[in-house]
Computed example of a mutant assay.
Amino acid sequence: MPDSVIKWGKGDVTIRELSKKVQLENPEAISSNKLRKQIATVTQILSLKPNEAKQFAKIHEEFYELPVDVYQTAKVSKLLLMMEKGTMPVKYKGKC
């Protein structure tokens, strides 16, 4: 958002609102996640030059992938919460 105090917009909300405004037959079929997956598929089909493919990979890494420490912390937290609630799936019991 050039020249704006807001650096990041809510793309998912915007896509949802626009898909309703243009009166699509099936607006729920349009989502930011599906759009991202479609872009990834198309970029593979396009046989991009190495530098172009690298640019897409960099954007994906920067905006969509969680840092490893955040991902691991979230996974451990989830397991600890399940243990606390007594809802640990059978496949995890006895593996701590």
Rank of each mutant, 00 (worst) to 15 (best):
D69V: 04
V68R: 14
P67L: 03
Y64I: 05
L35P: 12
K54Q: 14
L79N: 08
F63D: 10
V90W: 09
G9T: 13
T43M: 04
N33T: 15
L66M: 08
A53S: 13
K54S: 13
C96T: 06
E61P: 00
E84C: 07
G94H: 00
E62Q: 14
V68T: 11
L79G: 01
S47A: 14
S47K: 13
Y64V: 02
E17C: 08
Y71Q: 11
W8K: 09
T87Q: 06
P89M: 05
P27H: 01
S47W: 04
T43G: 00
F56K: 03
L80N: 05
K49P: 04
K20T: 00
V76P: 01
K49W: 01
K37Y: 10
T43Q: 04
E17Q: 12
L66F: 10
P2S: 12
M1E: 14
M82F: 06
T14N: 04
L79P: 02
V13C: 03
S19T: 01
M83A: 15
Y64R: 10
T43A: 09
L81Y: 07
W8C: 02
L79S: 10
K20C: 02
K54F: 10
R36H: 10
L80Y: 03
S31F: 00
S4L: 03
E65V: 12
K37W: 01
V13R: 10
L18P: 00
G11V: 07
G94A: 04
Y71H: 13
E52M: 12
Q38R: 09
M88H: 05
E62K: 13
V42W: 09
Y71V: 01
H60M: 06
L80G: 00
E62P: 00
Q44L: 15
H60E: 15
A57W: 09
A57K: 11
G11A: 08
L66T: 06
R16D: 06
N33A: 14
P50W: 08
S4M: 09
V76S: 03
K85G: 00
E17F: 08
A57E: 08
A74C: 07
I30L: 09
K20P: 00
G9D: 06
C96Q: 14
L24S: 02
I45V: 09
G9N: 10
I39C: 13
M83H: 05
K85D: 12
Q38T: 04
S77T: 10
D3H: 10
K34Y: 03
Q72D: 13
V70N: 06
T43C: 05
K93D: 05
E84A: 11
G11W: 08
V90Y: 03
L80S: 02
K20E: 03
K21C: 08
A74S: 07
Q55P: 01
Y92W: 13
E65L: 12
K91Q: 11
R36N: 03
N51C: 06
L46G: 11
K49M: 14
G86N: 02
T43N: 06
